[in-house]
Computed example of a mutant assay.
Amino acid sequence: MPLVPTPLDAVHLGARVVVRSRLDPLREAPHDGPSMTDAVGTLLSRSETEVVVATRHGDVTIPVDRIVAAKEVPPRPSRRGAAHLAVSVDDLQRVMGPAWGAVERERLGDWELRASSGFTQRGNSVLPVGSPGLPLSDAVDRVEQWYAVRGLPAKVALAGPVGFEPGDDPLGAELLDRGWTAADRTLTLTAATGTVAGGPATAGPTDATARSAGAEPEVRITPDLDDAWLDAYALSRPLDRQVAARVLTGSPAQLFASIAVGGGLAQRLGLDTPASRDPRPVAVGRLAVAGGWAGIAAVWTAPAMRGRGLATRITRSLAARAGADGIRLIHLQVEADNATAIRVYERLGFERHSSYVYLTAPRG
């Protein structure tokens, strides 16, 4: 099953899309020429009978019954260079927003307010890209009120170049003046999916031992979130299972990867865990598709299995699956002080694109 959602109703308005449609044989299609055409641009509107795409040559209205295929594609590059680095900070934030679900999403102008009962900072913060449609001070008032109603601290994910200072941004300065605190700087890393998926895998002790035993642990990838995957992920952080499931399945499309070790293989690896009797995931990861990009998240390995290359294998396997479905660009987020993870991802071909900082309102 392809990752890219083909129904146009799975794509949000304002996204950049390519829509392939049949030409009218009586008016548009030449007798001996092409019978189809592509419209590339911003999805302006859609109805039961037609969609409108803003292209470089003007708005194009396409009858729904002539659409052959449609998909969301990455934003236009904002500068020269490798495609994964040429996208602007704001456009990449727009791409990453839908790649992590939220129980509630509400618009404030161009900003997006997200709430998920406190599960993850991404799922409970404002994505402040574009204009809120209000004076900045009034917009922050609305944000504080919105989160207060939900019993959550108001939080904003403020993005900028790697190492930027929040106080140099007008919104950051406004929040800091109000007593908000800045913490949890996160790096956004990007790459070409082919780079991450290709090349010889980094073989840790688990890989080497398993190969010598003739039973290398398999990376299982499924579009469905199952209990075993969620059980493993729950070991990485406290969570409400119902809320977490809604967030983890809240993207336009997602895949869940896991490596389970059990039976004789677990014994040969010297694992004295319940997994030796009943195979259970000891490493997991998630990939989501939005904005024409793939996004890696929720990568976790059981403490007893770390340093054995499992996270690398999961990341490469997910990137390979995305690449097989025609997705050429990939992103992930990692805490800026997690030097070990950053080294792993940079060895895989990821590069530092930008960063963001969470600013949180004072309680009460």
Rank of each mutant, 00 (worst) to 15 (best):
P2M: 12
S78K: 08
E335Q: 13
A86V: 12
G264H: 12
E50H: 13
A245Q: 13
G204S: 07
L171I: 09
S78Q: 10
L8W: 15
E48K: 00
V299L: 07
A208N: 10
A69W: 15
E106D: 14
S45C: 05
G133F: 04
S35H: 10
Y147R: 01
L13W: 11
P205N: 09
D224Y: 13
G285M: 01
L239H: 07
W111S: 02
S21D: 09
V40E: 15
G109M: 07
E351H: 11
L332T: 08
V299G: 00
A336H: 07
R343T: 14
S117I: 10
A192S: 10
A210G: 13
V64R: 14
I62R: 01
S78I: 09
A54E: 02
D337S: 10
G101P: 11
E28V: 04
R122D: 04
S35M: 09
G309N: 03
G326F: 03
A320R: 02
A294S: 10
V89T: 15
L26H: 13
F164P: 09
N338L: 03
S354Q: 11
P252A: 05
R94G: 13
V284L: 01
T312G: 14
D177K: 10
T195I: 14
R343K: 04
R328I: 00
G58C: 04
V243Q: 00
R313Q: 08
P161G: 13
I296E: 00
R76F: 12
V149Q: 11
M1S: 15
V129F: 13
L113V: 11
A148N: 04
R150I: 08
H12S: 14
V60N: 04
T206G: 08
D24M: 04
T190F: 03
L108W: 08
A341W: 03
A154H: 01
A302S: 05
A86F: 11
V73Q: 01
A311P: 00
G179R: 06
A191T: 10
P7Y: 03
I62C: 00
V52Y: 01
R241N: 01
R66P: 01
P132M: 05
L26G: 09
G291H: 03
R268W: 09
